[in-house]
Nucleic acid binder design. Structure first.
Lengths: 340, 340
DNA sequence: TTGAAAGCGCTAACAC
DNA sequence: GTGTTAGCGCTTTCAA
């Protein structure tokens, strides 16, 4: 019985088999492009499938085969283009491996993030990549239930969980060093909420400030452009003396800070120098010209892909941590402190 | 037989049932939080599950229940933050509906896009949202095999496929109108490759130019910042006379154009005015100050979510098209033509 | 090469 | 409330 070729998702392999006059198993072989099927039967099956508008049910095939060839990827924030760069790196690193990707977005909320991880695990992803994760290692390990995972941009202590990141402590050091060399002494840092586990940049900043015998100035923000602008607006409104330089947790925050400075007629870099972190696309734009610390996001994605593939191939190995050295990218937002 | 609580993904419901001394069906009810389970048995099951490190297999449950409560979402380009805005709108619009999301990224390649759609369909997504799609309606319909879908940012003729978009033709008209009113007469348009199906903005531009009796000037680019910069560099190198204003297909392109102008000492807006389209976050930044046509990306996402939910609830209804009016956002990249 | 039969891990009636 | 019995649509031995 022929049906309209405009398909019905509930046509089964059985239907195709009947239509083609073969067994269900043979249809299965054809669908999986097995070489051991005669050209004649193969053609018959394909024709029957097309005629019925057959659509293989991947849920069923994955269930029966115990293989999904699928990785889950979680992103912290789609508005930060550093994650787009990481994504590109991941797809490059996975090219040719025959893996599918399931993507989810967490919005910096541990609850949402863990929910996404559980979902990946329940759907039997072969592995999980977390491009940003704000929860604890214990919760993550529990949610993973043994599924291999790689955390990107952070180092996590949990077995079965590898890490791929840039040396954020070093990034903080580099930023301060750069500013110090330009003659700056009053260097502030806009970091992120205390409860977030991304503290290394701040620690690097604090360490370097201490090394240089300088007084640290810390302000909290939330990793967003709006947050950076807000914080700087408040600071300017407070009437406190401005620092001569500001290092921010990330580029988005730096841009927000620059916007507020701009709105109040404070010149960058002449009145205040600004250094961001991540080196996202817009930071490099000549229109913005933000000095930043390159995280090598693309490379992080590629490395994470490699690591998860290795881990899936060899689940037993020791925990892997890959930490890349950051790189200072000097642009027009920093210059010699002219008021020293 | 107790196992380590550090989980094994292949512990089944049967194992939990045995451990708890109940039937498999009861375990299933507990997992789905059914109210008709006695507190005692419920506790026993939960305990057994925890002890064995049980992880429900969602592939199996979806297969058996014929319900996935999952929507597939495809994005054209993660580097363009307009898609992050659309994503936010979608999650808002879906809030409380109990739907999960599967995300994929297409990179403006019809092959990749269709592959992603097929994957969603094969995994039995209840519906598919395409935030940008560059293929044909025929190919899409074939890949969907009857799965409800909504195309965002484009109007597509295919049954079962609804559309949610901004009136792009009108966006082109608005841009030209704005520039005309500022006294500009030599207005160029940087659009996108001929083969891409996003032609409405160009058509709006051409229509308005004709209405005003002006000579159109078209240049092709590729929707990216880099592409916009490239095109403008080439134009400047060619030595041709500059237009007094440029309207670009999107904001990314506009920013690229402004970068090239900036690099060559051409002042915006005094020498050349620039108008983008989409109204993405950075365009609104005072540091960039790009005049743009707001696409209401968040609203598009919310509307698409509503439409797909309605379509899933009522598969039979007539095709829906929701077209929002665009809005001009004037910023410092446009000003009166001073050379007229 | 092809087919028959036995699952994969779960849900869904239906009976108790 | 709880257990029994059939499947869901596919893959996988194992024979033929």
């Amino acid at each position: 019985m022929k049906q309209s070729p405009v398909a019905n998702r509930s046509v089964t392999m059985e239907d195709v088999a009947r239509e083609a006059g073969v067994s269900r198993a043979l249809v299965s072989l054809v669908m999986r492009e097995s070489p051991k099927v005669s050209p004649a039967k193969r053609a018959a099956v394909l024709e029957a499938a097309a005629a019925l508008g057959y659509s293989p049910n991947r849920l069923a095939s994955r269930l029966a085969s115990h293989r999904t060839k699928t990785l889950g990827v979680l992103f912290l924030d789609l508005h930060n283009s550093v994650f787009a760069d990481i994504y590109d790196g991941i797809t490059e690193g996975l090219a040719g491996s025959g893996n599918q990707l399931m993507v989810a977005v967490g919005s910096a909320d541990p609850g949402t993030e863990l929910e996404a991880v559980r979902s990946f695990v329940d759907l039997r992803a072969d592995g999980v990549l977390l491009a940003g994760y704000t929860g604890t290692s214990g919760e993550l390990a529990a949610a993973l239930r043994g599924t291999p995972a790689v955390v990107i941009t952070r180092e996590l202590e949990a077995d079965g969980v590898d890490s791929v990141l840039t040396d954020d402590f070093q990034s903080g050091v580099l930023a301060v060093q750069h500013l110090y060399e330009l003659g700056h002494r009053r260097i502030a840092h806009v970091d992120i909420s205390d409860w977030l586990p991304y503290t290394a940049r701040r620690e690097g900043y604090l360490h370097a400030m201490e090394q240089f015998g300088l007084e640290p100035m810390l302000v909290h923000s939330d990793m967003t452009e709006r947050g950076g602008r807000q914080v700087m607006e408040n600071f300017l409104a407070s009437g406190s003396a401005l620092p001569t330089a500001i290092f921010t947790h990330n580029d988005l925050t730096a841009i927000g800070v620059m916007e507020a400075l701009h709105a109040h007629g404070v010149a960058v870099p002449d009145d205040v120098a600004v250094v961001g972190c991540d080196n996202i696309e817009v930071a490099a734009s000549p229109l913005i010209g933000l000095t930043s610390i390159d995280q090598h996001a693309g490379e992080l994605g590629r490395a994470a892909a490699e690591v998860i593939l290795a881990r899936i191939a060899n689940p037993g190995g020791a925990t892997i941590t890959r930490k890349l050295p950051p790189a200072l990218m000097v642009r027009k937002s920093t210059a010699t402190d002219k008021k020293q």
